[in-house]
Design a protein around this nucleic acid. Structure first.
Lengths: 249, 249
DNA sequence: TCAAAAGTGTTAACAGTACACCCATGG
DNA sequence: CCATGGGTGTACTGTTAACACTTTTGA
């Protein structure tokens, strides 16, 4: 039995795995793009990715292809985003592409290949195919998940002050958040925990800030349901541990 | 330029569009399945769907294929769920499948083909391929979205009493909700509106119930961010209108 | 001492839950 | 007038926002 087959009844399509890899750099969300040398869209910028191989699944495919851009362990989070199938998305012929959302913590600065660079998502250069709109989807997904999950762990360094974390959150969700409330909300939810260490104060003085870390380094839903909570099986703690991730995150 | 092409560098795969079409029937969530006559998995139940054709996109493909099961206008909602790519998901050879979530309002009873039937999601028969776990994903997505969007419109009839709606919600989210609070939450959010009409009381008497309808028949996020609301641009009304849907929704 | 930065206390607004009570109908 | 079912009033709780105030450092 062939591992790849096709027939008039079951037409086959080249399938690509793509990733919108996001990172907060200097208080702005950036996406990793590479510059196309060849047609179509020569000179424009594209998401990293490539063809799905016959024996791999999409998740391992995108991880493999990203390995040429960043080291795998630098990717703190990777999740499937959506599949694009517009017949005209590639002028050379029909393709299908499944996009992933990847996140790199802000303290890392992966050495990128020559043709690859970070671009702020709010000022993208000319992009290839439908990649510009995929970046938009990725950003929307990240913003939604910052509110009700602990995805922040994938954007932040291993230890940070509340001021550091605030800068990351403000960049990612796109509007202001006060350090006071950020600290309280995330501490109450059990998303953050104090490391017990202090950071050195800045050159202009000021009280030294406590260092925090994320309590978990894998995705968890921390605010499971805003409404329609299940009837009083819920103790203040129990409701937090509540549920697995559900939707498109 | 061929519309479908392949090469050693760009292997191609048959791509299927599938749908988990859900409906609340007699207070339980059901999924539409058809019984496979042929191998593999002969005799087990599968999600409706079929091959993606060369000139269509996935959304139109699944709509087309569902047309043989239900009338298109009976599907009140359809959204992309996830793409499965396990090389072994089909024993005949490599395939990729993109699953959709479809919803049918509870007052409809589409005439189904011979081999097709509704099955309660909490007591599925033997299923083909990875379809059983796709049903699980679909249910999880529905449950999550019931809390923060108006998806309910796609499960409910055009007009209904709060008691009717409660039955639907309870079935879909899987735990009890009181009619009192359901009404208040959905009215305050502007998700429901009164039609002004009353329903006839039951045979055993009782006050006649008001009839309600959903204010909108397209998906909207009604509880945009449980936390990290943007700073006081938010009037009690404005915060509701807040945002487009983001994530995997 | 003073300015700067971090963190805590406190209040107010708001959403959701729970429950008692009142309303409207059929027998 | 009683049982049945629907709806509203109201109290309570949990969560977040806003802001004042205290703490801790460098100059």
């Amino acid at each position: 039995m062939p591992s790849v087959w096709s027939s008039p009844d079951r037409p086959a399509y080249p399938h690509h795995a793509l990733a919108a890899v996001l990172q907060v750099r200097t208080a702005r969300v950036h996406v990793m793009l590479w510059r196309r040398a060849n047609e179509p869209f020569a000179g424009t910028w594209a998401l990293p990715g490539g063809p799905l191989l016959p024996d791999e699944r999409l998740g391992t495919s995108i991880a493999r292809q990203l390995a040429s851009k960043v080291e795998v362990h630098q990717l703190a989070h990777l999740e499937q985003l959506e599949t694009r199938s517009d017949p005209d998305r590639d002028p050379r012929g029909r393709t299908v592409a499944t996009a992933y959302l990847g996140l790199v913590p802000s303290h890392l600065d992966p050495l990128l290949p020559e043709d690859t660079a970070w671009h702020p998502v709010d000022a993208l250069p000319a992009t290839a195919f439908d990649h510009g709109s995929i970046v938009g989807s990725a950003l929307a997904r990240l913003r939604a998940k910052l509110s009700y999950t602990n995805v922040g762990f994938a954007l932040a360094p291993p230890a940070f002050t509340i001021a550091d974390l605030r800068e990351i959150y403000v960049a990612a969700i796109g509007y202001d958040v006060t350090p006071t409330n950020l600290q309280r909300v995330l501490l109450r939810r059990g998303v953050l925990e104090a490391t017990g260490e202090l950071s050195a104060p800045g050159r202009s003085g000021g009280r030294p800030a406590m260092l925090y870390r994320f309590a978990s380094a894998s995705l968890e839903v921390t605010d499971p349901f805003a409404v329609f909570r299940p009837p009083t099986a819920r103790t203040p703690q129990a409701s937090r541990a509540g549920r697995e991730i559900g939707q498109e995150g």
